[in-house]
């Protein structure tokens, strides 16, 4: 990744003509300028997800996951869609996130497990885990991984992302903290995960767009977005999630309020580790369902 200053970026932006100021306020573009391939990301939202109160409706949650996976795979039924992702002979680890303030909702974990079982994987060959993945026999022997977590702002990496979700596979997670976690993409090279991830689901049910203390979920800085981002490219999915967070921050604070620190690791996963694309112009975003205030 090359060193870039504001002035250098302005010069390049000027050459690209329009949109200079907006461009500057998107750190993700600042860090990534070399991506090539297009990636498909499905954003599905449902206003009824929280119709019953503060807990997501499991039936709506299931429907959202199924619809998104069908659209992503281009197949008509959830059964076919899941069969194209997971084989009956697979050993499947579902990497979730248990951060007590904003964990992956149980309806997401339950639906994913049910769909894996529905493909024909036996109960003993599927596991949902977070902090115990390194000791978990299913994850140790896994042939397939599904990666899911909610998005939230983070005091050191800018945002908690799908890329960051694999830090629990590291022998020493703090080894990946340098330079505001810029190297998180290298986690994908760990033997326990390399080449195994079949699907990424970034939960945007109630994302947290700002925080005041690293240890605390900031309820007043989260909102019922009722969304789910699904894709095969974690960099693309994370970068769409980031755009939603940034847009919400602009709206809430009524000014550009960059993430502090910027979510450098998403773009570095693109430019240095070539795990996918972070460039919005190279992401095919498919929007399904509720569109009001979708921010993207």
């Amino acid at each position: 990744m090359e060193n870039i200053s504001r002035r250098e970026l302005l010069k390049r932006t000027a050459m690209m003509a329009a949109g200079g100021a907006l461009f500057l306020n998107r750190p993700i573009n600042t860090w990534a300028m070399e991506s090539e391939a297009a990636s498909k990301v499905v954003l599905i939202r449902n206003q009824k997800l929280y119709a019953g109160g503060d807990t997501p409706d499991p039936a709506v949650c299931e429907q959202m996951i199924d619809e998104a996976v069908c659209r992503l795979t281009g197949l008509d039924t959830p059964k076919d869609a899941w069969a194209s992702i997971i084989k009956p002979t697979d050993i499947v680890g579902i990497k979730t996130n248990q951060w007590n303030g904003l964990p992956t909702p149980s309806c997401v974990n339950d639906t994913l497990k049910a769909r894996v079982l529905g493909v024909g994987v036996t109960e003993d060959k599927v596991s949902v885990d977070d902090r115990g993945v390194k000791r978990n026999p299913v994850f140790q022997q896994a042939t397939a991984l599904i990666n899911t977590r909610p998005m939230r702002t983070h005091a050191w990496s800018g945002v908690g992302t799908l890329l960051k979700n694999y830090i629990m596979f590291a022998e020493k997670p703090s080894d990946y903290h340098e330079d505001s976690c810029a190297v998180l993409g290298s986690l994908q090279e760990l033997p326990i995960v390399k080449g195994k991830t079949r699907l990424h689901l970034l939960v945007m049910f109630t994302p947290q767009f700002h925080h005041v203390a690293p240890s605390k979920f900031a309820e007043e800085y989260s909102w019922k977005y009722g969304g789910l981002l699904v894709g095969f490219d974690p960099v693309a999915v994370d970068s769409v999630g980031l755009r939603i967070i940034e847009a919400k921050r602009r709206e809430y604070f009524n000014e550009d309020r960059p993430l502090n620190p910027p979510a450098k690791h998403i773009a570095v996963a693109d430019t240095r580790y070539h795990l996918g694309t972070s460039d919005p112009s190279k992401i095919e975003l498919i929007k399904l369902g509720w569109d009001e205030n979708s921010y993207v």
Binding site: N3, I4, L9, T30, W31, P262
Partner: peptide
Amino acid sequence: YIWLNAYLFIANYNL
């Protein structure tokens, strides 16, 4: 230097 870009982008390194 991580906090150099807290309010606006200045540089992606320790300028």
